[in-house]
Simulated assay, not measured.
Amino acid sequence: MRAVAFMVGSATMFACMAAVIRLASEQLHPFEIAFFRNLFGMAFALPLLFRHGWGLLRTDKLHLYATRCVIGMLGMLCGFSAIVYLPLAQAVTLSYSTPLFVTIGAVLVLGEVVRARRWTAVAVGFLGVLLIVRPGTEGFSAMSLVAVVAAVLSAAVAISIKMLSRTEKPDAIVLYTTLFWVPMSLVPALFVWVWPTGWTWLWIVGAGFFGTMGHMFWTRALKMGEASLLTPISFVQVPIVAFIGWALFDETVGLWTGLGAAVIFASNAYIAHREAQLARRTTTDPDMPPAAGGATAEQPALPESPPRPPARS
Rank of each mutant, 00 (worst) to 15 (best):
L278C: 09
P303M: 06
T178C: 00
L186G: 00
T103W: 05
V113F: 09
L248Y: 13
K223M: 12
V236F: 10
S97T: 15
L94W: 07
G136W: 11
P239M: 05
V133N: 02
D171P: 08
P300R: 08
L56E: 06
S165Q: 13
T257G: 10
A82T: 01
L278Y: 11
E275D: 14
D287M: 06
P170V: 05
R117C: 11
S185K: 00
V102S: 14
N268D: 06
D171S: 15
T284L: 14
G198M: 08
S141E: 13
G41T: 03
V174F: 02
P290H: 13
L49W: 08
T59Y: 08
D285G: 09
S185G: 00
V122H: 07
L164Y: 10
V133P: 03
A3R: 03
M216K: 07
F210M: 10
V70E: 01
F191R: 03
H52G: 09
E304S: 14
G53Q: 11
G125T: 01
S154F: 00
V253D: 10
G105D: 10
S25M: 04
G105H: 09
D250V: 05
T197Y: 05
A227T: 10
I132W: 01
A142F: 13
A261Y: 03
R58K: 14
M224C: 12
T231C: 14
I271G: 02
D60T: 15
A89D: 09
G105Q: 10
F209H: 02
E168N: 13
M288A: 12
S267I: 05
L77G: 01
G9R: 07
E275P: 05
A189V: 02
T212F: 03
T137G: 12
A11V: 10
P306K: 11
G198F: 06
L164S: 11
T12G: 09
G245R: 07
I104R: 04
L153V: 08
Q299E: 13
T59C: 02
